[in-house]
Each structure stands twice: as C-alpha cells, then as structure tokens.
Amino acid sequence: GIDPFTGEAIAKFNFNGDTQVEMSFRKGERITLLRQVDENWYEGRIPGTSRQGIFPITYVDVIKRPL
C-alpha cells in the first residue's frame, strides 16, 4: 500500500551513484522519498522496482516532502 509518510519527487537530472548505498536514476523518473538523511541527501526508492538508496537533494524536484 501507500505509506502516508513518504514523499515524492521527480528526477531533474541523471544521477549515477558511486557506491552501493547510492541509487542511480534517470531524468524524469518518479521517486518515492523515504526520509531526508541530512541537508544534502534523501533516501528513496523507485516504485515498482527493487532500487533503493540515497541521492543528492539537488538532483530532484520535490513534489511532497517525506514526514
């Protein structure tokens, strides 16, 4: 089901994660935001896939912030 505490964002740019914990994505992908890790990073996942990880806040347009 849908978790009411998650947020939502759209990727503004392609992001290629450097490490296992970073999640790569392509511009235009819809991302579920799980939490804000710190002032620069979100943790999120791509709905319908097993992809999950952290990524820079500046790479996405936030539609709804996670609670």
Rank of each mutant, 00 (worst) to 15 (best):
G1A: 13
G1F: 09
I2M: 14
I2C: 14
I2Y: 13
I2G: 15
D3H: 12
P4V: 14
P4L: 14
T6H: 15
G7P: 07
E8G: 04
A9M: 05
A9I: 04
I10M: 07
I10D: 02
I10N: 03
A11W: 01
A11L: 02
A11P: 01
A11C: 04
A11R: 00
K12A: 07
K12S: 06
K12W: 04
K12Q: 06
N14A: 08
N14R: 06
N14V: 05
F15S: 01
F15W: 08
N16P: 06
N16A: 10
G17E: 03
G17R: 05
D18P: 08
D18G: 14
D18L: 15
Q20C: 12
Q20E: 15
V21C: 15
E22M: 13
E22V: 05
M23H: 01
M23F: 08
S24Y: 04
S24R: 05
F25G: 00
F25M: 03
F25I: 07
R26V: 15
K27H: 07
E29H: 01
E29Q: 05
E29I: 02
R30L: 12
R30T: 10
R30A: 07
T32D: 09
R35Y: 08
R35T: 06
Q36H: 07
Q36N: 05
V37S: 03
V37F: 07
D38Q: 06
D38R: 08
E39S: 10
E39V: 09
N40S: 10
W41A: 04
W41H: 12
W41Q: 06
Y42T: 03
Y42K: 00
Y42R: 02
E43D: 06
E43T: 04
E43W: 12
G44R: 00
G44T: 00
G44Y: 01
R45E: 07
R45A: 11
R45Y: 14
R45N: 08
R45P: 00
R45S: 11
I46R: 01
P47F: 09
P47E: 15
G48K: 05
G48E: 08
G48T: 05
G48D: 08
G48N: 10
T49M: 03
T49K: 04
S50R: 10
S50C: 12
S50M: 12
R51P: 00
R51V: 05
Q52C: 10
Q52E: 08
G53I: 01
G53L: 01
G53Q: 01
G53M: 01
I54W: 07
F55G: 00
P56T: 02
P56D: 04
I57N: 06
Y59S: 09
Y59G: 03
V60H: 00
V60R: 00
V60D: 00
V60C: 06
D61R: 11
V62C: 05
V62A: 04
V62M: 08
V62K: 04
I63C: 08
I63R: 06
I63P: 05
I63A: 06
I63Q: 07
I63F: 07
K64Y: 09
K64P: 07
R65P: 15
R65V: 14
R65E: 15
P66F: 03
P66H: 05
P66G: 05
L67G: 15
L67H: 15
